[in-house]
Design a protein around this nucleic acid. Structure first.
Length: 779
DNA sequence: CAGTGAGCGAGCTTCCGCTTGACTT
């Protein structure tokens, strides 16, 4: 046993540091927190000054025992967890759980993992900062109280197994609020006018000059009248303005900005990005990937400079130090950057390569010079109208950081890229070629993508780098939110074209409102959000976290007692919980849409046991109402009476085939045809309302054919025993249960007896507890 | 796999932040 034991949070860090410290030091990881409030009990003794009841986390029992053994054998134990609220708490929990003695325990911190930084830290040990620890305890206990008192209210008043919390409930609110904005949005049409002129370029060749009118017309008539004026007008250049401008590089990546750029540039989901980054970190290729800091170490600054100088020369280098502006940032780590700046690319999967390359470019660019641009604006006037056309061009005079990296934005602009303009002079007359007035519509606010939601949460100071990805998966797991797949709708727009003294009017069609992979609230998400907004508006307030963070800061500074802070919160919060439990109505999102003109029965929608439903009639006596499920994409809040009545047209009969009836309907997994006891899924292109009997028969035949191909072997002895070829390879199907075939066996060689033996030996205990839901591992 | 649409009843669900592996299919 070595003389010194150093405990850090992550194993990758432990490995690196051990190399720096030599043989007198053993470095072990704690794998994050080792203790927490009890998982199932409330875990806080409210009546006893909010005393937390901690337990060693079940999966950390062995680890803590190992650490205990190592610490007992060491002369000095160095607690080297991160220098932030959570890190300080980890150090404190370690000292408590391992029963470390004050005299041989040291607390050290460092912000970059380099040999000098660590040796320096060893020289300057300090005490555990108990105020900072108390701020963490207050944070932890407050989150437990909010989560474990609010969730049961939802179980009682809305639906079982739901959840609420300081972070997740605000995340859902953002999405619900945005969706309502979109629903309430009225788009306005206007006519955008673009003129094309023919001019000669520097070589005397004719080129096109494009210019947009500075005015948009509200109506087609106005646009038409303007084109009429253009017919007889002369066009000339009135003004040319050249303006130099600069563009500066973005700071190096934090967790949040990495997630945003990887989503925009590479199309990765938030959790995908984190998984790939983790791989890169473990392979020693990048620094730690959960950080809110934009700071680069002196080492990285020097290496970046050397790289830029050798790659592009002195003119491209510019020293920059970025300031973190994020609310509540704790800055225990560096920004996310390559470990070795001279490594331009790495080996690995293509995803790892792409993400690494993104990180490398962003880091290098952040130490490069500004790009210098020149923007030219040309004003074009008409001889018989006051409106002006503008042509805008931008040229890069010096590329600077743009040589390696350009940050993306969320807005997909429909502006064409601004190009180089031909040489032109003021007062030069212009030949008008064509003028078009195109009807355009104002854009609704965009829905949140995962990464855009992370950005908003970070802006509000809600959540931490380690929780962005888990939060997004939680609100989807609770079915408050789902990824959209909206086809949008078609709309027509008018285009007026003036060419050769004639005005042509065309009607064109375009798709709008389509959205893929954006976050949409579900009915349950909206009902839960509205309920919480009604009874706990202060918790859902976008500033709630920011406000309590201020108190945590005061606790950390020793200005505020943590128990008093919690009491202050609890004394207001808890009575609201009690009151809501006792006196609020159950919520089902019910809306009465009206009366069915055919039957005269009431039509209503609400959340039923298995999801949103429409109900025809009211339960009274023996009279049972009819029910139908809402379709994907329909919301309780926006469905109309006609749309609701439409849903009762399914299931419907398609007539008989081979003396058996075919019925088409929509189930949990989409549209289907039921025939002779079997289900046949409809492809997405088929509409259950309009599908014909012929198509249905073709579907049934196709499915039977493919099922036949799936059968690798059947047995005369028993119809129920089959060897099938499935998604994961060959398997045995017997009495509706499936059995694995060892990869060593050739499935075609299996005899009937051998199959039975496999079935007999199947020791797999079928877990029937629905509580232990297996989460599908898909991102 | 897909039809259902209540609650006499039994018992469970849930938070946020630190960190990585286990798990089969």
């Amino acid at each position: 046993m070595s003389k010194n034991l150093v405990i850090v949070e992550s194993p990758a860090k432990a490995k690196t540091i051990e190399k720096f410290l030599g043989s007198d030091y053993t470095v072990l990881p704690s794998f994050g927190h080792i203790r927490d409030l009890s998982e199932h009990a409330f875990g806080v003794d409210i009546t006893n000054g909010f005393q937390p009841i901690y337990e060693i986390s079940p999966d950390k029992k062995k680890l803590v025992a190992d650490l205990k053994k190592a610490s007992d054998g060491a002369e000095t134990v160095w607690l080297a967890s991160d220098e932030d609220r959570e890190g300080e708490a980890i150090a404190w929990h370690l000292s408590e759980a391992l029963k470390l003695k004050h005299e041989n325990t040291r607390r050290i911190v460092f912000h970059e993992i380099t040999k000098p930084a660590i040796l320096k830290a060893i020289e300057q040990p300090r005490e555990i900062d108990i105020d900072l620890v108390n701020a963490q305890q207050a944070r932890r206990i407050l989150d437990r109280i909010v989560g474990f008192e609010l969730s049961p209210v939802l179980w009682r008043k809305v639906k079982s197994s739901l959840s609420a919390g300081r972070v997740q409930s605000v995340a859902v609110r953002l999405i619900v609020d945005r969706e309502r904005e979109i629903q309430g949005f009225v788009s306005e049409a206007s006519f955008r006018v673009i003129a094309l002129f023919t001019v000669t370029d520097a070589d005397g060749k004719p080129v096109e000059l494009k210019a947009e009118l500075q005015h948009r017309f509200k109506t087609k008539e106005e646009a038409y009248a303007f084109l009429e004026t253009c017919k007889t007008s002369h066009f000339g250049i009135e003004d040319i303005v050249k303006k130099p401008s600069k563009r500066s590089p973005a700071p190096p990546f934090t967790t949040s900005t990495l997630q945003q750029e990887a989503s925009r540039k590479l199309g990765y989901s938030v959790s995908q990005t984190m998984m790939i980054a983790q791989k890169l970190y473990e392979a020693g290729q990048i620094t730690y990937m959960r950080t809110d800091s934009v700071n680069l170490s002196d080492l990285a600054l020097g290496a970046s400079k050397a790289e830029i100088l050798s790659m592009a020369g002195e003119r491209y280098w510019q020293f920059r130090r970025f300031q973190t502006k994020t609310k509540g940032a704790q800055e225990a780590h560096e920004a996310i950057r390559p470990t070795y700046m001279d490594k331009h690319e790495i080996s690995g999967t293509s995803q790892e390569k792409n993400l690494y390359s993104l990180i490398w470019k962003r880091t290098i660019a952040s130490q490069m010079s500004d790009a210098e641009l020149e923007r030219t604006t040309i004003t074009i006037g008409l001889s018989n109208a006051t409106e002006k056309f503008l042509a805008v061009g931008e040229v890069i005079k010096f590329d600077g950081f743009l040589r390696v990296y350009m940050e993306s934005t969320d807005e997909e602009s429909d502006q064409e890229s601004e190009a180089l303009l031909p040489p032109l002079k003021v007062k030069q007359p212009l030949n008008m070629n064509q003028v078009t007035a195109t009807e355009r519509f104002s854009q609704r606010p965009p829905r949140y993508s995962e990464a855009a939601l992370v950005r908003k949460l970070e802006e509000l100071g809600i959540g931490r780098p380690s929780t962005y990805a888990p939060t997004i998966s939680t609100i989807q797991k609770r079915t408050y939110v789902e990824k959209s797949n909206l086809d949008g709708e078609m709309r027509t727009f008018t285009v007026l074209t003036l060419k050769k003294d004639k005005i042509k009017e065309e009607t064109k069609e375009e798709r709008f409102g389509a959205d893929k992979g954006k976050l949409l609230p579900t009915d349950i998400g909206m009902v839960v959000n509205d309920f919480l907004m009604d009874y706990f508006p202060n918790i859902l307030d976008y500033n709630f976290t920011a406000n309590v963070e201020k108190e945590f800061d005061d606790i950390a500074e020793g200005q505020l007692d943590w128990q008093q802070a919690l009491k202050h919160f609890y004394d207001k919060f808890h009575p609201m919980v009690v009151e809501t439990m006792a006196n609020s109505e159950r919520r089902s999102g019910e809306r009465i849409l009206g009366v069915d003109p055919k039957s005269g029965k009431q039509v209503s929608v609400r959340i039923g046991r298995f999801g949103p439903i429409v109900q025809l009639g009211i339960k009274e006596g023996d009279e049972k109402p009819q029910f139908a499920s809402l379709k994907k994409g329909q919301l309780l809040e926006t469905i109309t009476l006609d749309e609701a009545l439409e849903l009762f047209k399914l299931p419907r009969s398609l007539g008989e085939w081979d003396a058996k009836e075919m019925v088409v309907g929509i189930g949990r997994f989409g549209a289907y045809v039921r025939y002779d006891g079997g289900f046949y899924s409809l492809p997405k292109t088929e509409d259950p309302m309009s599908i014909t009997a012929e198509t249905a028969v073709a579907l049934i035949q196709a499915k039977r054919e493919s099922d036949k191909n799936r059968q690798m072997k059947v047995f005369d002895q028993d119809q129920e025993l089959k060897i099938l070829n499935g998604r994961y390879g060959p398997y045995i199907s017997y009495q509706k249960k499936n059995y694995k075939i060892s990869s060593k066996t050739d499935p075609l060689q299996l005899t009937y007896e051998a199959c039975l033996e496999i079935i007999q030996n199947d020791t797999k205990t079928v877990k029937k507890s629905p509580a232990k839901k297996k989460t599908t591992k898909k991102g």
